[in-house]
Computed example of a mutant assay.
Amino acid sequence: MRLMRALRIRSAVALAAVVSFSVPAVLRAQIGHLPDRSPYEDFKIGQSVTVMGGWLSVKRDLADVAPQPSWLAGLRYDIGVGGPASLFVRYMASPSERNLLVPTNTKANRVIGTPGVTTHLIDGGLDLSLTGRKTWRHVMPSTNVGFGLVSDFAKSDTGAYQFGTKFSFNYGFSLRYLPRRGPQLRIDATNYFWQYQYPDRYFVKAADTTSILTDTRNREAWRSNWALTAGVTFPIFR
């Protein structure tokens, strides 16, 4: 019995000694190395200007008078407003072409040309970093929502159609590469929503008994249009 007690005491002392030496060693390893190896780094969301270009994929509308998909270019300004949030304003322009329709012509001769048109988009909104005020291996993903205006600044055409200036709203996602110094890189995918409105002439039948549109409930129609852009960001006022 005494031998068993002695062995138990010695085992307990040995275990305590191992724990007392090993725990500080583990703590030293965590404190001394893990933060240095962390993929996360603090990042101050300040002010920046981005020069960007990309592609505007305009979705075909009911009457097929929308601009064709085309390249676009623009500028964006961001300012941090606290925590992971920032506000932005953005302007982009996309030169393209669209179909010019004459509603009184037969279906075979209804399209009489494809004039040039430039779509102008100006919007602002809120951008929210998904990694807070930190980057992951210098990368910061974010999501954003906004609203603004879209216009082609054109008058009514020969078919009485006018795109005009419209309210739009959007949501999107961003991915930024943020080195410690110098310019930054960003990629954006933004889905814009705006409404098309068609004149009465589009519902009038031509000589071949066809019309551009047949259901008057389609006089107004919303469409989504994706814009994919890549740009170079320059921090300012740091």
Score class of each variant (00 low, 15 high):
residue 185 L to A: 06
residue 232 V to F: 01
residue 132 G to E: 02
residue 200 D to K: 13
residue 187 I to N: 05
residue 186 R to Q: 13
residue 128 L to D: 07
residue 190 T to C: 08
residue 106 T to S: 15
residue 104 T to H: 14
residue 152 D to N: 10
residue 204 V to T: 14
residue 149 L to F: 08
residue 115 P to K: 04
residue 227 A to T: 07
residue 130 L to D: 00
residue 191 N to W: 12
residue 230 A to Q: 03
residue 171 Y to V: 12
residue 162 Q to F: 07
residue 199 P to A: 02
residue 216 T to G: 13
residue 135 T to W: 01
residue 163 F to V: 07
residue 232 V to L: 04
residue 192 Y to L: 04
residue 227 A to G: 07
residue 124 G to E: 09
residue 175 L to P: 00
residue 183 P to K: 00
residue 221 A to F: 10
residue 183 P to G: 02
residue 110 R to N: 08
residue 188 D to P: 03
residue 202 Y to K: 05
residue 176 R to Q: 04
residue 133 R to N: 13
residue 208 D to R: 02
residue 232 V to E: 00
residue 139 V to Y: 00
residue 124 G to A: 13
residue 146 G to H: 05
residue 164 G to W: 05
residue 221 A to L: 11
residue 170 N to G: 08
residue 202 Y to I: 01
residue 105 N to C: 12
residue 223 R to W: 15
residue 148 G to Q: 03
residue 208 D to N: 05
residue 119 T to P: 05
residue 172 G to K: 03
residue 188 D to W: 01
residue 139 V to W: 03
residue 229 T to F: 01
residue 108 A to S: 15
residue 100 L to Q: 10
residue 130 L to K: 01
residue 134 K to Y: 06
residue 171 Y to W: 10
residue 141 P to D: 02
residue 108 A to V: 15
residue 148 G to D: 02
residue 126 L to G: 05
residue 195 Q to H: 06
residue 142 S to V: 05
residue 179 P to T: 00
residue 217 R to H: 12
residue 191 N to H: 13
residue 117 V to L: 13
residue 207 A to T: 08
residue 230 A to V: 12
residue 104 T to M: 14
residue 105 N to V: 10
residue 113 G to Q: 06
residue 149 L to P: 05
residue 184 Q to V: 01
residue 162 Q to S: 12
residue 125 G to R: 03
residue 197 Q to F: 08
residue 111 V to N: 08
residue 185 L to K: 00
residue 105 N to H: 14
residue 232 V to T: 05
residue 214 T to A: 13
residue 157 D to H: 06
residue 151 S to C: 07
residue 163 F to S: 08
residue 175 L to N: 02
residue 227 A to N: 05
residue 221 A to E: 15
residue 111 V to K: 07
residue 196 Y to V: 06
residue 220 E to N: 12
residue 118 T to R: 03
residue 163 F to E: 05
residue 216 T to Y: 14
residue 189 A to T: 13
residue 210 T to F: 08
residue 141 P to E: 03
residue 118 T to I: 03
residue 181 R to L: 09
residue 152 D to P: 06
residue 225 N to P: 09
residue 211 S to F: 06
residue 215 D to V: 11
residue 200 D to M: 10
residue 211 S to P: 07
residue 103 P to E: 04
residue 209 T to A: 11
residue 175 L to C: 06
residue 149 L to T: 06
residue 155 K to Y: 11
residue 174 S to W: 09
residue 143 T to R: 13
residue 103 P to W: 00
residue 194 W to F: 11
residue 157 D to A: 04
residue 127 D to C: 02
residue 139 V to D: 00
residue 135 T to N: 00
residue 130 L to F: 00
residue 158 T to Y: 09
residue 126 L to D: 05
residue 166 K to E: 07
residue 190 T to N: 07
residue 188 D to A: 02
residue 184 Q to I: 01
residue 171 Y to L: 11
residue 144 N to I: 12
residue 223 R to L: 15
residue 222 W to V: 07
residue 178 L to M: 03
residue 102 V to N: 09
residue 214 T to W: 12
residue 212 I to V: 09
residue 106 T to F: 14
residue 154 A to W: 10
residue 112 I to F: 04
residue 191 N to V: 14
residue 232 V to G: 01
residue 171 Y to P: 13
residue 128 L to Q: 08
residue 167 F to S: 03
residue 229 T to R: 04
residue 106 T to V: 15
residue 167 F to R: 03
residue 186 R to D: 07
residue 128 L to E: 07
residue 154 A to H: 14
residue 123 D to P: 10
residue 222 W to E: 09
residue 203 F to M: 04
residue 217 R to M: 13
residue 135 T to F: 00
residue 112 I to A: 02
residue 214 T to H: 14
